[in-house]
């Protein structure tokens, strides 16, 4: 395994965790917020699938999802669900950011697109929780 495929493997693990997290988030939301969570969940699944294809193509066994992931705090209502959504996106963004270093070409493009999408979703969730404009300088 190269540094690039190592980084993509870490990104895949982060996507698995985000997908698990959105299952918890979605269970506490309704209406527009639920739709936002479902869109985010679908985007993370799409990224996961692309990573599995990418790693498999170069003969690397893609890391599987864990049965469960520890949550950073109890999710009991819509507010805590949206706070978790912010964290899920921030954590995934941080992993993708790291992946930019060792990757090149199409892999770096994949990482940059993923980082940008995570940053956009994190900002949207911050705005949903009342933070304006909800941006951060270095997502």
């Amino acid at each position: 395994m190269s540094a690039a495929t190592d980084a993509l493997g870490s990104a895949l693990a982060a996507e698995h965790a985000a997908i698990f997290g959105y299952g918890v988030v979605g269970a506490r939301l309704t209406g527009a917020a639920l739709a936002q969570a479902q869109q985010a969940d679908a985007a993370h699944r799409d990224r996961r699938d692309r990573l599995i294809v990418r790693l498999t193509k170069v003969g690397i066994e893609a890391p599987a999802a864990l049965p469960a992931y520890a949550l950073p705090f109890p999710v009991t209502d819509p507010a805590s669900a949206q706070r978790l959504a912010v964290q899920l996106e921030e954590r995934a963004a941080a992993i993708w950011r790291v992946a930019l270093g060792p990757t090149t070409g199409h892999d770096r493009r994949l990482a940059l697109d993923a980082l940008t999408d995570c940053a956009l979703r994190a900002a949207r969730w911050r705005r949903a929780t009342g933070q304006q404009p909800g941006t951060v300088p270095l997502p």
Partner: peptide, 14 residues
């Protein structure tokens, strides 16, 4: 690359 990617992502949120 990571710093430049973060700056690009920040500008996307703007």
């Amino acid at each position: 690359a990571p710093l430049l990617g973060s700056i690009a992502a920040c500008r996307a949120t703007h």
